[in-house]
Simulated scan of single mutants.
Amino acid sequence: MTTIDQQLLTQLRTYYQAHLEDIIAENIAVCEVAAPPFQELERARYVAHRLQEAGAESVSIDETPNVYAQISGQQPGPTLMVTAHLDTVFPAETDVTVKRVGHELHAPGIWDDSAGLAALIQLVKGLRALQTPLRGRLLIVATAGEEGLGDLRGMKQAFKCFGSEIDMVIAIDTHFGMITHTGIASRRLQVGVSAAGGHSWEDFGAASAIHVMGHMISDIARLEVPADPRTSYNVGVISGGTSVNTIASHAEMLIDMRSTDAQCLADLERQVRLILQRHSEQGRSG
């Protein structure tokens, strides 16, 4: 069992309360470096630069692109990895300028996870400013590919690099003021439907990829999942079609499934795949 150093905790709390404006400024600066899905490199470079300025050791960026840094302890002890993710869900053309309204900051991604990245940087600054002696090693990782179809590639890469060395992990990601100690398993599917398509008048009755997908979504929406273990699903993105008078020949959707129980997640995925297969077998996919 790890004992919390209450004296150090009090020192850190006092330090960060005195440097609140610095933390806010850091949050704003991170947010205003855009990091759309699969385009995190510019923000990775910014975070690496700030970690180096804060006094972190061995700062580097890999091809993922993850940012790695560390603080070595003066005594033997465990390795703690603290992470936050670089990417946001917003496309490249999104205006990420932060607006400050009273005590609130408003901008896409200001919370998820610019605040987490700012916390990583300020964690290093606080520990260095207080000249805090550590046992073991503090490993700082800013990960790529957390959102959407990123498939947690950054976190997977971090564990590929350091997995056997890591004793504990803390991920800083939204919901400040609470601690989540239960792992949530997730599964995401990218589904494409192709059909004959045609003209809405001349070819009326021909299979439409959008109509097929509509049937799939309707059946998925009727699935019942347990509240305990908590399980969820969502069709978050749909696209397809050419024009209002064209029978769609192609459509796509993204499905997100989650559960605190691996078996419940597997059962949900099986049911979703059965729905997709059933509509395909019925010939609705053309």
Rank of each mutant, 00 (worst) to 15 (best):
residue 3 T to A: 14
residue 5 D to V: 08
residue 5 D to A: 03
residue 10 T to M: 13
residue 18 A to S: 14
residue 23 I to G: 02
residue 24 I to Q: 06
residue 25 A to K: 12
residue 26 E to W: 07
residue 28 I to T: 07
residue 31 C to L: 06
residue 33 V to W: 09
residue 36 P to C: 11
residue 37 P to L: 14
residue 38 F to K: 11
residue 40 E to G: 05
residue 41 L to D: 02
residue 43 R to H: 12
residue 43 R to I: 11
residue 44 A to L: 05
residue 50 R to V: 09
residue 50 R to P: 02
residue 52 Q to C: 12
residue 58 S to V: 04
residue 58 S to R: 10
residue 61 I to A: 00
residue 62 D to E: 00
residue 62 D to S: 02
residue 64 T to Y: 12
residue 67 V to L: 03
residue 68 Y to L: 05
residue 70 Q to I: 04
residue 72 S to V: 07
residue 76 P to A: 13
residue 77 G to H: 09
residue 80 L to R: 04
residue 80 L to S: 05
residue 82 V to L: 10
residue 82 V to M: 07
residue 82 V to Y: 04
residue 85 H to K: 04
residue 86 L to M: 03
residue 86 L to A: 11
residue 86 L to S: 00
residue 86 L to K: 05
residue 89 V to D: 05
residue 90 F to Q: 05
residue 90 F to C: 07
residue 102 G to T: 04
residue 106 H to M: 07
residue 107 A to Y: 03
residue 107 A to T: 04
residue 107 A to G: 06
residue 107 A to H: 05
residue 110 I to K: 04
residue 110 I to V: 15
residue 110 I to C: 10
residue 114 S to P: 01
residue 122 Q to N: 14
residue 125 K to C: 14
residue 125 K to V: 15
residue 127 L to W: 08
residue 131 Q to I: 05
residue 133 P to H: 06
residue 135 R to P: 00
residue 138 L to M: 10
residue 138 L to Y: 01
residue 139 L to C: 06
residue 142 A to T: 07
residue 143 T to N: 13
residue 146 E to H: 15
residue 146 E to Y: 12
residue 147 E to L: 10
residue 148 G to T: 10
residue 149 L to R: 07
residue 151 D to V: 08
residue 161 C to S: 12
residue 178 M to F: 08
residue 187 R to F: 04
residue 187 R to S: 14
residue 193 V to F: 09
residue 193 V to A: 03
residue 196 A to D: 10
residue 197 G to F: 10
residue 201 W to A: 11
residue 202 E to A: 14
residue 203 D to A: 12
residue 205 G to I: 12
residue 210 I to Q: 02
residue 210 I to A: 03
residue 212 V to Y: 06
residue 214 G to C: 11
residue 215 H to Q: 15
residue 216 M to N: 05
residue 217 I to T: 08
residue 218 S to Y: 10
residue 218 S to F: 08
residue 222 R to E: 07
residue 227 A to P: 00
residue 227 A to K: 14
residue 230 R to N: 10
residue 230 R to M: 13
residue 232 S to I: 15
residue 235 V to Y: 00
residue 236 G to Q: 08
residue 236 G to H: 09
residue 237 V to D: 03
residue 237 V to Y: 03
residue 238 I to H: 04
residue 241 G to I: 14
residue 242 T to D: 11
residue 249 S to I: 07
residue 251 A to M: 11
residue 251 A to C: 14
residue 254 L to D: 09
residue 256 D to K: 00
residue 257 M to V: 02
residue 257 M to Q: 06
residue 263 Q to C: 03
residue 264 C to Q: 02
residue 266 A to W: 02
residue 269 E to C: 04
residue 281 E to D: 15
residue 284 R to D: 05
